[in-house]
Design a protein around this nucleic acid. Sequence first.
DNA 1: ATTCGGGGCATGTATATATAAGTTGGCGAG
DNA 2: CTCGCCAACTTATATATACATGCCCCGAAT
Lengths: 258, 258
Amino acid sequence: MMTSSRSPLEPRAALHRVIGDELRARITDGRLPIGAALPSEAELCREFSVSRGPVRQALAALRAEGIIAGGQGAVAHVVGSVPTQSMTSFLSFSEWAQSTQRRPGQRTVELAKRAATEDVAAALSVPVGELVVEIIRVRLLDEVPVMVERTSFTLEAGRHLFDFDTDSGSIFAHLKGNGVELVAARHTFDAVAAEGIDAEMLDVPSGSPLLRERRITSTGAGVPVEYSDDRYVPGQVTFTINNTAASGSSVVRLVPDQ
Amino acid sequence: MMTSSRSPLEPRAALHRVIGDELRARITDGRLPIGAALPSEAELCREFSVSRGPVRQALAALRAEGIIAGGQGAVAHVVGSVPTQSMTSFLSFSEWAQSTQRRPGQRTVELAKRAATEDVAAALSVPVGELVVEIIRVRLLDEVPVMVERTSFTLEAGRHLFDFDTDSGSIFAHLKGNGVELVAARHTFDAVAAEGIDAEMLDVPSGSPLLRERRITSTGAGVPVEYSDDRYVPGQVTFTINNTAASGSSVVRLVPDQ
DNA sequence: ATTCGGGGCATGTATATATAAGTTGGCGAG
DNA sequence: CTCGCCAACTTATATATACATGCCCCGAAT
């Protein structure tokens, strides 16, 4: 009654995703400025030649991201474009840095296979003493050290790293190419003081504050693959989180304004 | 064909939310342990006497939170119970502390009405010099100071605070009672060194690291109401984020294991 | 001029149905 | 005994429909 000219059920396309991406694009490029009212659901149905289902799914996703608001009885309107990063961009320092104006760099300090210590074993859900692959790298932006990263991989995933130049490419891209897909991560933030080696590598005074992010990354099946302890020099990188009462939140890593 | 005995369209109930909460409860209390397979969609339909729509909505929400995984063709299964906190629990220190074993406390240092400085004005989207309500409080857990909080409210929201005992109740509960509903927040994390007054109030050495959370909280319409600069003593409180490639992420504030 | 209803429109929720596609397990051929 | 293929089951996606409820605006009454 409302659309048609489309046989019931075409191949596959994930229409709701198509619609959501299109609306997101209109918001970010200004065709739907902040405060503007979105087209009504019925209009979107006509425009995309779909039924209300996919349209509502797309709107629900936008609402969960905090990009649109409004509700029962009233047309939804744009409340702001929340900066969003894909999962891979959030996980991979290399990929993230490329999306900023800063020039990324990295220096591998150590790549080793060794027995898991207690905390690493707990994070990766393996027995203490099991072999893991550990890599320590200093990350740079415009030649300035901003982060030191101590990452432990399970042997299964980490063995791919020995035939790989850890100073150039992205580890995540390399792992993905080898069939290791990381889709879930858990990040914990706190502050620590820079100590001996870290202070030296990051070129900051001993005892000065660092932002620490500890991260456990898992496959879709929930199997932990990576545990990392990353320590950031303040003022260079911050982490930003958006959350709304309705549903979840999104996480973004940003270079602060200056 | 599958359920019924329920007239088409009862009042209002948000069945998908009921179903989601029930499943969440089963997972957290162990009736659905990690790794267990969920009932099939058809079974859930029978059990709750609903059609597939609400069931699928509930499962989609659980999947977005990273609690369940699995999909096309296979029954979904539990991959882990992600600790989740409601928005209010995440925003309100008082409410959050009550869900831990620690005994919360607070000491109001200052409550004032003053002209907005540049950074506050920018955060709250008001002109520089506009009157705002600022409150400085030290937050305690088991009598130990763990955080100092500098919060600025717009005058509209903040004027309710002067007839309120800021040492006892929750500001958020009080604001909600006065019709100010906060539903969206943006948090930014970094590390700073403890300086003069902060170090004194938190009873830590000057120059020691603090975890800083800066937060802008808005109403559903996207109007900023609160800007806060909270500084945490390390080791007492951490922030944890879960995110998955599919969909968003959730944010949690936790007391670390010790 | 201001306020109070009512109706139209838009969204929220739920049902029934249909097709595509992935998973799993069993059966038969080599 | 093993390998491969197929059938049954289950989920993902989409359509059409129906009704409940909340906004918003316009017109009438005060």
